[in-house]
Design a protein around this nucleic acid. Structure first.
Lengths: 333, 333
DNA sequence: AATTATAATGTAAACATTTTCATACAATTG
DNA sequence: CAATTGTATGAAAATGTTTACATTATAATT
């Protein structure tokens, strides 16, 4: 690695002068400046940001870290895109990491992120008690939570009204005449999964339908289990006439399963899924879905993070965004 | 800011000892360790990452940078997942950045990555002459190209046989009796787009079909233009009976368009798309696609990068992986 | 008792910059 | 001509760690 000293040596000046050239200090003669710049170029020299940061210690790195549960999930892609666009507008780069819902992987990443001196972090905590993230908040690292908040500590968060979203979806199916509605839940450890389950239950209750626990399946939020559990539901002696899936991967798994069994959506089984996708229209049939504003979540979170980086003392903010029920053919209209 | 020296002073030991406690060095007596830990706690001391990094300059940062054209494209997600899993196995973290096919954004990211001492880089160059990346290769940064290589310099690359993939797809449609086959190309600046176009042309020629340039549309690789251009093709006086789309976003756009026009796939128009997607089975109808091994591309690229980080002098390697034609209903079988 | 090995700690030099202060020289002033 | 001012540069200190090497104290061996 070529360093400032090398440049100074080759240019026959002191390190101070090179530094002055780099920082556009006025008190360098034009000839010296030109000479130094030439050497900088010829050696392909790039200043070390680490050393710069150490020297005057509060120079920003202009990097923010993102810790995302699952990059295969289009919803998080939207969030990421929102963050990324906003970051770009603010001259930040994004250190994104996908920890595939794995606690160990999350730890590794956060360890590395810690030592990378990111200016801030946008994270979806594993659950409301995620210790690794709580520790980082305590240390004073600017953090904004997305999708899920933290219980034991005051922290910025951008979330969605999952309860309402699930309630609306279930109510739609009830309004369409269904009384036997299956639900495939995501990882129950995750707060959003619980809120969606609660919304489902509440809707049933409000319309006088008894909660039937055989109709509710708990998954690891992944597509394969969506497929498996849908199959199990459909092969019951008294299968549900409608299905509400807890996230988009589960929805895709359910579609797969239903097509394999040669059943018709919505005639044999109606479907509403949590999470819309931009190609939902091209599915067979087009999917009725609870749409989360993923891009908006990302954008808001990034904005809040940049504010907090500027001023870490401002009071914490919780933003709750609304979901929207997008009705297409899979629910039978 | 309380620093290591403060801790040392208050605990009555040297800075070296404090550092040893911090880094779990064995050669510290239990009493000293306890004493120091107590002081660390009482002072709420946090080591400066910047200083640590400066000190460790010559060590690896255990971060690799990824520069990806488009995070909305499921193919790149697969590549990224392959990279990420492999990186995790090798205790690396991934600094991913999506530059949305924008040259300016690519520059910003590479600037930041350069000065942030990543150990290596996996990049999909903008085109074969991508200067920013060539410069980095020249500087000696370990780099592996994915999806597209570089012309003017010797560099590791993992690519796919795009020509063969496109040829196979076109041949399939010809074998099914089509003579009037439309093609929507991705950004023609990108080498893969040109190779796919060439494969398409070659197949036509081999089967004695004249190349009709009105049937070929050039796009910016995005979904919206897939939709727009499909519409244009279908509204010709003599529209194609089959369509070959140059990437998955274009395919989804085409589906959207065809459904809007209330046409039937494959009866009104047969479709084969470049790029498979894991939910291709749930599309209406299930998509016939040229499947690229995205995950494998990522895995191989990461492995090659780690090798190169270990030994930057090994000869460069070009890996060309095969595509696979996955036949489903959209081509009419 | 003298030597040697072992364990615990300390000293000081790196790491790559920026910046304060000092210096050398030229130009201006009284 | 001496004194002052201004301009361009350099020497060296400082930023907060880690670590190679040196030192001391203690235990084990001869």
């Amino acid at each position: 690695m070529v360093k400032l000293r090398d440049v100074a040596y080759k240019a026959g000046v002191s390190t101070a002068t090179v530094s002055r050239v780099l920082n556009n200090d006025t008190s360098v003669s034009i000839e010296t400046r030109k000479k130094v710049e030439k050497v900088i170029h010829s050696l392909n020299y790039i200043p070390s940001r680490t050393a710069q940061r150490l020297r005057h210690q509060q120079k920003k790195s202009n990097i923010i870290g993102i810790v995302i549960p699952d990059i295969q999930n289009p919803f998080y892609i939207d969030v990421l895109q929102g963050i990324e666009d906003t970051a770009y507008d603010n001259e930040y780069a994004v250190l994104a990491s996908n920890f595939s819902q794995s606690e160990k992987r999350e730890k590794l990443y956060l360890d590395i992120l810690k030592s990378e001196s990111v200016d801030g972090l946008i994270a979806a905590p594993l659950d409301e008690h995620d210790e690794t993230i709580i520790e980082l908040v305590k240390r004073g690292l600017p953090i904004v939570c997305v999708d899920r908040g933290l219980n034991d500590i005051d922290v910025d968060a951008v979330v969605v009204d999952n309860f309402k979203g699930a309630y609306d979806a279930t109510k739609l199916l009830i309004d369409l005449g269904h009384r036997h509605i299956g639900f495939i839940s995501g990882l129950i450890r995750i707060p959003t999964s619980r809120q969606r389950l609660d919304g489902y239950k509440q809707a049933l209750q409000d319309f006088g339908i008894d909660y039937d626990e055989t109709l509710v399946k708990f998954s690891d939020s992944k597509r394969d289990s969506g497929q498996q559990l849908t199959k199990e539901l459909l092969q019951m002696k008294n299968p549900p006439t409608a299905l509400f899936t807890g996230n988009n991967l589960l929805t895709l798994g359910a579609f797969e399963s239903i097509h394999q069994l040669n059943l018709n959506i919505p005639n044999d089984i109606a479907i509403v899924g949590f999470d819309d996708m931009y190609w939902a229209n091209s599915l067979n049939p087009p999917l009725t879905a609870v749409s989360q504003p993923g891009y908006e979540i990302g954008r808001r979170a990034a904005e809040m993070l940049f504010q907090r980086i500027e001023n870490n003392d401002r009071p914490t903010v919780h933003v709750v965004l609304k979901t929207k029920l997008v009705i297409r053919r899979s629910c039978g209209s």
